[in-house]
């Protein structure tokens, strides 16, 4: 049996405990809903329109930069694991890899695309 079985068991227990807690609260707590209670909370003022608000595209840009660097670190993890036994050649390769990506970051920075406003 691989150790993933235990991770699976952890997922199961991690699911059981919060479900149990919320279930217990569901059993014990009173349930008397009314329209005023169920209104969305906006500091006591009635909500105008639905909750849809236009977001800045800037959120997407940051998520995008994150995605690229996330994938990059995935490449770097096997590299880091073997670094001790691979010698200078591998180190240089990894550094080239990182430098290429830093060029990308520098470009977006230079062009002012990392600014929030």
């Amino acid at each position: 049996m691989s150790s993933w079985v235990y991770v699976g068991l952890f997922l199961l227990v991690g699911l059981i405990i919060p479900v149990g807690a919320i279930g217990a609260a569901w059993v014990l707590a009173p349930k008397k809903p009314n329209p005023i209670k169920q209104m969305t909370y906006e500091c006591g003022i009635e909500t105008v329109g639905d909750s849809w608000v236009q977001f800045k595209a800037q959120y997407y840009i940051f998520a995008l930069v994150f995605l690229i660097f996330d994938v990059e670190t995935v490449f770097l993890f096997p590299w880091a694991v073997k670094l001790n036994s691979l010698g200078m050649f591998a180190v240089i390769e990894g550094i080239i890899f990182i430098l290429i990506l830093i060029v990308g970051l520098a470009y977006t920075w230079r062009k002012g695309m990392l600014e929030w406003v």
Binding site: A29, P30, K37, Q38, M39, Y41, D50
Partner: peptide, 12 residues
């Protein structure tokens, strides 16, 4: 307190 507090679900 958390266990016996009423649990409201917002409309929509």
């Amino acid at each position: 307190k958390l266990l016996i507090k009423e649990d409201t679900t917002p409309e929509g």
